[in-house]
């Protein structure tokens, strides 16, 4: 760690805190009172896919990254080869 870092560390953390809070609260204020959007989306997306292929619920990985302008919802579903072949 450089000497510059050492002196600037304490002073520079408050703006980081502000940025993180603004981003988080912008999302939470929109979502308050509404059902958990990620959970609803996951359930409905999986229901659509399940109409066509069997899904093992344990093999579904859901990731979310909330950004200032764009958030990404990532849903990984494992499809065994024999399932695709049947479809």
């Amino acid at each position: 760690m450089s000497i510059l870092n050492f002196f600037s560390r304490n002073r520079s953390s408050a703006p980081v805190a502000k940025d993180r809070l603004q981003l988080l609260l912008a999302h939470e204020r929109v979502l308050s009172g509404r059902p958990d959007l990620a959970a609803v989306l996951q359930k409905e997306i999986l229901a659509v896919i399940a109409k066509h292929i069997p899904i093992d619920q344990d093999k579904v990985v859901v990731k979310l990254d909330r950004g200032a302008k764009v958030s990404t919802l990532e849903i990984d579903i494992e499809m065994p080869d024999e399932v695709i072949a049947q479809g």
């Binding site: 981003l23 988080l24 958990d36 959970a39 344990d58 859901v62 979310l64 909330r66």
Partner: peptide, 23 residues
Amino acid sequence: MGAERRVVFDLVNVVQGDAKLPQ
């Protein structure tokens, strides 16, 4: 912990069966 942007499911989801623990 700096993970606030990555929360999808939580303890209540797991307790109520809406999500599996690894998720």
